[in-house]
Design a protein around this nucleic acid. Sequence first.
DNA 1: ACAAAAAAATGACTTAGGTCAAGCGGCTCT
DNA 2: AGAGCCGCTTGACCTAAGTCATTTTTTTGT
Lengths: 253, 253
Amino acid sequence: MRPTEKPFTLTAQKVSCGRCCLRELCAPIDVTPQQEDLLHALVKQQHLSIRRGDHLYRGGMPFHSLFAIHTGSFKTYMLTDDGRERVEGFYLSGDMLGMDGISGDTYTLSAVALEDTGICVLPFHRLEELTRESPVVQRQFHRMMSREILRDKGIMMMLGQMTAEERLAAFLLNLSQRYEARGFSATELSLRMSRQDIANYLGLKPETVSRLLSRFQDDGIIAISGKNVHIVHIDRLRAVLGFGDGIYFDQLP
Amino acid sequence: MRPTEKPFTLTAQKVSCGRCCLRELCAPIDVTPQQEDLLHALVKQQHLSIRRGDHLYRGGMPFHSLFAIHTGSFKTYMLTDDGRERVEGFYLSGDMLGMDGISGDTYTLSAVALEDTGICVLPFHRLEELTRESPVVQRQFHRMMSREILRDKGIMMMLGQMTAEERLAAFLLNLSQRYEARGFSATELSLRMSRQDIANYLGLKPETVSRLLSRFQDDGIIAISGKNVHIVHIDRLRAVLGFGDGIYFDQLP
DNA sequence: ACAAAAAAATGACTTAGGTCAAGCGGCTCT
DNA sequence: AGAGCCGCTTGACCTAAGTCATTTTTTTGT
């Protein structure tokens, strides 16, 4: 079932970890420089490079750490009993991975790199220690977990009541928003994931995603060239959702 | 849009709170009696009685507490921009409510009682204090939040790739499992929520839910009488999902 | 740089579930 | 207790999205 590939190893490396990889924990509030130093000390200890197609973790592996994405992007998925996969989300630089592992002793999802990536390892027991010492860091960590819950509620909303067209529009707008928050263009998207993955994530079939992308292009809303999507009329894309603006189905910063 | 009803007030009452209402925090592990006392001291402070149809909290209200359901059941929902509601979940005695409020300063969902209920209030800042003092309680709280995340991933899975028939079977089996975990019959379910709510939760239309319940009954799998469902052949209900047993789409204990 | 393989696009047709409409029955309220 | 209302059920029909099949494009490995 699982493709053979090199086993999961913690390849410690000397990679400088900018503050971006702690966006979720530090931002958006008043972590004092001192506390920030603590966080950076924590995260600076271990770094990993995960190549495109390799796994950061797999469902069933013992849980020990959370991971902050320094560069690159991941998809997470869950395996069904009959071996098919269900894509649960796409994570970009600054996002935190691994929270699905906290409740048990093992990770529940699997995380696979969509491109060559650099990630920071946060040993969970160290993070817990730190949150016991600093109420501010504690609160920030709790916010982070709660945000993941909200994110999921948003996706449930989408899967529960949006049409295929609305889902795809919401997906593109969400990506646009997140790219923008990272300082990239909000209208020039580079889709790192396959149409298959997009379809799976949105609860659709690849053919439907293909058709809809073509339709959006024919309507002049977007221009596609392979993995690159140019959003020509972001307002018309918003209009597909039937309301002006706001947050779509996934509020990750 | 919102029906007028008595405003949200913290009607402190003298209700004895059995340990059941802290299932999520204490169970299943080794909280020492001492720590358990701390938790109970925390939770014993405030109790609420919420009548059927009344709200425990509403999206937009300032966040201050988590709530443990002592008796009764709730549904949570989110309002869409155009005022329709999306049912996010059903919560039974022992379940924890309000985690959607942690990430912001306000609750995001709304929680409405499906019957007359008794709930315990856990002021969040007190809970955070407590988790700073006790690593065991801290870990347990983190597990609880992570379990909520997993629960949502499970629902996403359902909404993303199950047929209507599978969703309804999963819903019934999930309820059965949770009733059983609370010491009730696994085969005699009393549905506290409307067909509308079930449909909305499952991403279906009420007519479809009705038809499927009738079909399950015609097939002899269940026997329905209004809100009461008797599961006649739980194995055949499991077979609808295409695999033997296990956990369905929602692992709340 | 080329060939093979995988991914994506497109068309024809099917179907699960939605929509609309009508009748039934069990609660709620006075 | 009885009237009225709302929620539930059921039927007939429709449509959005899925399925299957074919072609085109992109990616990958030598």
